[in-house]
Amino acid sequence: MTTNESTNGYLVGSKLERMLKAGHFAVTGELGPPQSADGDEIREKAALLKGYVDGVNLTDNQTAIVRISSIAAGTILVQEGLEPVIQMTARDRNRLAIQADLLGAYALGMRNLLCLTGDHQIFGNHPTAKHVFDIDSIQMVKMVTDMRDEKKFQCGDEFKGIEPRFFTGAASAPFADPIDFRPYRLAKKVNAGANFIQTQLVYDVDAFAQFMEKVREMGLHEKVYILAGVGPLKSPGMARYMKKNVPGILVPDEIIDRMNEAGKPWAGKKSSEMTKEEKRARSKARREEGIQICIDLIQQLREIEGVAGVHVMAIEWEEAVKPIVEGAGLYPRPSV
């Protein structure tokens, strides 16, 4: 192939872009590659997502822990017939490495990209590493959309051959501080050329609706597809942990209450006093409630003007995606 595949009025023509452009409520999922060279683990997780999502995010050394790279994992997904959204952080690569890897990723069939800052390496398994942060996520969006639309490398040199064309996304953390700046930071990402946005996990729909109101006021929802982040809770402990320890995640008490309620038949019993069967039953009841909460959230988020889809983050619990997507009435996925 010496010329670009026809994009027929699309920027890229990826399934995710076609889905969003057609006005369908999009569903993306997420897959965390293994901390080993086990490609089969990716295939197994991919099988759980296939058919239920329009694109699968592949994390890039998520939480600064070394894993199979997002592009290598994406190659496996392409082979398995799924559409990858490769994540790329500014932490591990400079502008040379990012561009080089994206040339390769395009050549290997990848079409969607999510540009991220990346968690600080101090959280991961190589806290003594030197980080990069040559460019930030906003500069990365501009760089890759310029590669696509201006056919230029970041340095300004023009492409001689095929340019990499990515449907380019960025993240938004609507509830991180300084909270008043968040819509403006989103605007910067849009101005840099972002085509879609995936948000941090939303549990507080009212707070998210307020954010979206500002986003609409600024007209951003007309320039970018916003996919609200959702994820199933496994236990009340997980809900409390996220509320307390994860920056930018708001978990309303009523959701924690619902998770507590699900474990009520076993209330008052210490874990040490419970039989294996009881523990399993409690865990199952809580997980079912977590999935139901996720379904309810999707339905509420769908009502908010400017929300173009959801990004379902069920990392290490990919089995949950099927019941969530089905339960939310989003299955089967439209064909585009």
Binding site: T117, D119, H120, D136, S137, I138, Q139, A171, A173, A176, D177, P178, F181, Y184, R185, K188, Q200, P247, G248
Partner: peptide
């Protein structure tokens, strides 16, 4: 270009 999502 502004704060990452980890500012709290």
């Amino acid at each position: 270009n502004g704060p990452c999502g980890g500012s709290e």
